[in-house]
């Protein structure tokens, strides 16, 4: 790994007595796309805000771009782009005015701002809505504008807190494509998400967070290899059927997870598992075979599913 752009040691965030981030360590290298994956309340946003120098640490050490957020927050913020979880655009202004004002906070020259606005409105596919009031935009358009705004200062590090929440599938894929292009230009990305497909698509490396702690770390593929079997057979039982104990499935797969709506059989040999499932077919609404995902990793690590 080259020189780390962000280093955290024993990072802690508290709200009153409640510990939101409980002593986590991580390092993020320049040019990397790094993910924080975890369920609601895991501490992802709290961590992002500390990295963005908009929230004080309650413990541990943090360096961002080689700087100390407590002492040099303004200098850090000048060089990073922030896309917060909740859009906080100025609803009373137009699309272009939002970008303009934001650019002035970074003290960009007016000429540069005008050029960046043109580029970013194309990037966000909002060129036609340039003079529309933000109030009148759809949720997905607002999200895209918030992302464009975070890029106004041509940042070398971009923090995206659940960038695609609220976007339709098409817009999500368009955004992934754009983030991928940013990454190819050498921009470092830090992304939080609770969509495993997003993490798999975008992240070179990620940490899985749960209740303020990091429970696993690696590339998506590593994590799946380490914490899951390659394939999963999902069974959906008829509503009236009693699923029974995990031991019932013990000889069908290496590991079993019983969820409220389905049973997951983790197996290295899906064909063999399916052959053993077939005798109970009349008890089932259906079954399917799929490749393991980060969702399975999370389930294994925490015993809970990622999206509730």
């Amino acid at each position: 790994m080259s020189v780390p752009l962000v280093t955290a040691r024993g990072l802690v965030k508290r709200f009153g007595d409640f510990v939101a981030v409980d002593g986590i360590d991580f390092e993020i290298a320049a040019g990397e796309a790094f993910g924080f994956l975890g369920p609601n309340g895991a501490g992802k946003t709290s961590t992002m805000r500390m990295i963005a120098a908009t929230s004080p640490l309650d413990g541990g050490e943090l360096r961002v771009l080689g700087l100390d957020p407590a002492a040099e927050g303004s200098a850090i913020r000048a060089r990073i782009g922030v896309v917060p979880q909740e859009d906080n655009l100025d609803m009373e202004l137009t699309v272009a005015e939002n970008l303009y004002i934001y650019g002035r906070y970074f003290d960009l020259p007016r000429r540069v701002i005008r050029r960046r606005i043109d580029e970013l409105l194309d990037f966000a596919q909002l060129a036609e809505r340039r003079d529309a009031r933000v109030e009148s935009l759809s949720g997905g358009m607002k999200r895209r504008l918030t992302i464009a705004r975070g890029l106004m200062n041509d940042p070398e590090l971009v923090l995206l807190d659940e960038p695609t929440t609220g976007l339709d599938p098409q817009a999500r894929h368009a955004l992934w494509d754009r983030l991928y292009r940013l990454k190819r230009r050498g921009v470092t990305l830090i992304i939080t998400t609770h969509y495993m497909d997003e993490a798999e698509q975008l992240c070179d490396r990620l940490v899985v967070m749960d209740r303020g702690r990091i429970v696993a770390e690696g590339s998506p593929r590593d994590l799946i290899a380490r914490y899951s079997t390659p394939e999963v057979v999902e069974l959906r039982f008829r509503p009236e059927v009693d699923v029974g104990a995990p031991s019932r499935f013990a000889d069908m797969a290496q590991r079993v997870e019983i969820l409220p709506d389905r049973v997951l059989l983790y197996t290295g040999d899906a064909d063999a598992t399916v052959a053993k499932v077939e005798p109970m077919e009349e008890l089932l609404d259906g079954f399917l075979v799929r490749r393991a995902t980060l969702e399975d990793v999370f389930l294994h690590l925490t015993g809970r599913s990622l999206v509730d």
């Binding site: 913020r77 917060p84 655009l89 009373e92």
Partner: peptide, 14 residues
């Protein structure tokens, strides 16, 4: 209401 301060404070403004 508009949460514009939160947006401003993500920039170099202190």
């Amino acid at each position: 209401w508009r949460k514009t301060y939160q947006a401003v404070l993500a920039t170099p403004v202190t």
